[in-house]
């Protein structure tokens, strides 16, 4: 209990700390004290402008995207009862990517591009749902297979679009596919959704735990498993669609952070989901800060950084836990 409390305290400080680091670093170096003043609308006018209009929205968007991807990944792992599941396994990001690339080819940008991505993600969600549902049957393996096959289909369409795209547009498209937080985003809606997601997780958590026993087993313990699974699928899809709309398909966060948190905290979803959301958010903020500073003034796609940080971190924890589990 004590250990869990300390861990939560650490995660909260990490969340605040990561945002502070993000807003103070960049080509214009702003000290933490100056940054704090600037958030409150005091101090140097240039600092205020840089932080309030550029760095803070970007850091908060990164936090929301990281948190949402992590929640979506953890929910997909529970829904599919498969530790390999991530937010993209059922092709939701594939649908978003095809729509976004088509929009880029048509010359759209900004809100229109984001709107296309969101619509693409939702279409992919409905397609998987409809095909996997069939005539009343909605088994886990059928859902997984339908999703994986559709994801492969989206992948082929993405390759096709990249092959026919004019070379001038290719870098932008690749950046989108690898995940990119540089477009100036308003993070309010995504942050709100993240907060709701964390609040939802608490009353739903015990039923989610029981779902890992199997669908019929959960039902015989009093869980309305059919409704619960629809709910998880819709929530995970909405979280993924929102994240992908804001930042493209950033890989790795949604797969690795839920497992990282499980290694730290165990697999009780009531503790796991809020902690994972905080950790995922913080890690993406830090990764994005590195992505825009490491070879400044060039920016790296943040998806590259999440993999570079996530892979070794996860392997180290896995090695450490092998002894006593």
């Amino acid at each position: 209990m004590m250990r869990n409390g300390l861990l939560y305290l650490f995660l909260l400080s990490l969340a605040v700390g990561s945002v502070l680091i993000a807003i103070s670093s960049g080509s214009l170096n702003i000290g933490l004290a100056q940054a704090w003043l600037a958030i409150q609308g005091e101090g140097d006018a240039l600092h205020q402008q840089v932080i309030q209009q550029l760095r803070l929205p970007r850091a908060l968007a990164a936090f929301a995207v990281g948190g949402l991807l992590t929640l979506a990944g953890a929910l997909m792992q529970v829904l599919l009862r498969n530790p390999l599941a991530d937010p993209y396994v059922l092709g939701i990001s594939g649908g978003a990517a095809v729509a976004a690339l088509l929009a880029m080819l048509a010359g759209l940008s900004g809100v229109l591009l984001q709107g296309s991505a969101f619509i693409g993600a939702m279409l992919a969600t409905i397609l998987v749902f409809g095909l996997a549902h069939g005539k009343g049957q909605w088994t886990t393996s059928r859902l997984l297979l339908t999703g994986v096959v559709l994801a492969a289909g989206w992948g082929a369409m993405i390759s096709f679009l990249l092959a026919i795209a004019p070379t001038t547009q290719l870098p932008g498209m690749l950046f989108w596919l690898m995940g990119d937080l540089s477009p100036n985003n308003n993070p309010t809606w995504a942050l709100g959704l993240l907060l709701l997601g964390i609040l939802f997780a608490l009353p739903m958590g015990r039923s989610l735990n029981i779902l890992s026993r199997g669908e019929l087993q959960a039902q015989s313990l009093g869980v309305e498993q059919a409704k619960l699974r629809y709910g998880i699928y819709l929530l995970a899809s909405l979280y993924t669609a929102t994240a992908v709309t804001l930042a493209g398909s950033i890989g790795f966060v949604g797969l690795v952070v839920p497992h990282l948190t499980r290694l730290l905290l165990g697999s009780d979803n009531r503790r796991l989901l809020p902690a994972a959301a905080l950790l995922g958010g913080s890690l993406l903020v830090l990764a994005d800060t590195l992505a825009r500073t490491i070879i400044a003034p060039q920016q790296l796609p943040v998806g590259v950084l999440t993999a570079l940080i996530g892979v070794p971190l996860f392997l180290i924890l896995l090695q450490r836990n092998r002894g006593h589990d």
Partner: peptide
């Protein structure tokens, strides 16, 4: 069980 739970956590699920 698709995710590792302890013996105590598992038996507590009976109270659900």
């Amino acid at each position: 069980s698709s995710f590792p739970a302890t013996v105590l956590e598992t038996v507590l699920q009976g109270r659900h």
